[in-house]
Write a protein that binds this DNA or RNA. Structure first.
Lengths: 204, 204
DNA sequence: GAGTATTCTTACCGATTGGTAAGAAAAGCG
DNA sequence: CGCTTTTCTTACCAATCGGTAAGAATACTC
């Protein structure tokens, strides 16, 4: 899904692989030190490149950031058949993602660091994260409304509020998990939280 | 509680006020652009100083950061008579803090930005936030255990897990609130969540 | 008003930043 | 092999970074 370009005519071929390596490395290092705290030379060095060599593939630091964010979205999309039908599956896939993320510290760092950093208007990823949260909340609200109509939500659970809480719990748990060196059981705490919204637990 | 120093002998007096202004400004700007994204010149300029003028009061950028974090802790301590007796009051004070914070964007930005940024070992505030979360979780767990013994928690609520969830919801809601320009009702969503842990709602 | 700390500025430092210019290496095609 | 395109390096740039040195202002005490 990512580096599929068959060796183009001319003398391409190698470019795609290098690009992929750069993006992967960028995800790692942006996660470790944030966008502002990372230099192109850092990323390039870990790829065995000089920084102008990197800039040949991505014209600007900002372009590389957006490529990194986009790629992580693709990966997530692959892991999750989420967009089938809303409902219990949507919630279950959140827990699944949390479980998978516990083995991908780099990606968790990337999102935790950048979502907070991009809070400030003027940050290159500001619009990206605004859109991301908007659509995330919309999807979740929809799924919860479906569950409500099916009578699967406990009394007093408001879909829009619950959606915000779910997203918040996921984000917040990631920060704790990152800070305590992986001790926090993200998937467990999330599942526990979700079960408190539902009439019947997620996984029997 | 902050600038109480009565004009010291010699030719001091002004120093304390300047220091306070610097710290307040630092809180603002660190919040907007993070620690790594902020320059001492930015902060100094907004204080009507040059950056060496700032460095006279705080020997290093890191020292200023710690001063900013410490000051915010003081302010929080003042707002909250939290440490009286654990129990419902502890939870109620969280909602109160959320409500107050909705009028202090700078401080919310500071903590949201820095807690994520400091996730990386090697960040100057890494230890600070590790300790902060540790004690926050410990206090909350204690309060919830008290509530459990008093039979005020719903069935299946585990104090340690719930503590993590509460902290996570607070943190996560702040990011959403920052991103959507204050539309998220932090205090409301938090109170709603807390009520789902309790047998009887927080405020009748 | 003289003297003395305190507070702040101008000028500078070496290091690092993102980005550019120009050309060398490498790889495929005929 | 020669030619072309892609890929990457060396060398450089102006701007900015945190921090230092040294002295001018300022403000208070006596």
């Amino acid at each position: 899904m990512t580096t599929v370009d068959p060796p183009r005519r001319g003398a391409a071929a190698k470019g795609g692989a290098t690009r992929a390596m750069i993006v992967d490395t960028a995800i790692e290092i942006f996660g470790e030190t944030g966008y502002l705290g990372t230099s192109l030379r850092d990323i390039a060095a870990r790829c065995g490149l000089t920084h102008p060599g990197l800039l040949y593939h991505f014209p600007t630091k900002e372009a590389l950031l957006m490529a990194a964010l986009t790629r992580r979205d693709e990966q997530d999309g692959v892991d999750n058949p989420t967009h089938g039908r809303p409902g219990r599956d949507t919630l279950a896939s959140l827990v699944r993602t949390a479980r998978v993320n516990a083995r991908r510290r780099g990606i968790v760092e990337l999102y935790a660091t950048l979502s907070a950093e991009s809070t400030h208007p003027g940050h290159p990823a500001h619009a990206y994260f605004q859109d991301r949260y908007r659509s995330l909340l919309a999807d979740l609200t929809l799924a919860l409304e479906d569950l409500a109509q099916a009578g699967e939500l406990r009394a007093g659970v408001r879909p829009d509020v619950a959606a915000r809480q779910i997203v918040a719990v996921m984000d917040g748990l990631q920060v704790q998990w990152l800070l305590d060196g992986g001790a926090t059981d993200m998937a467990g705490a999330l599942a526990d939280f979700l079960d408190r919204l539902l009439v019947a637990p997620l996984e029997a």
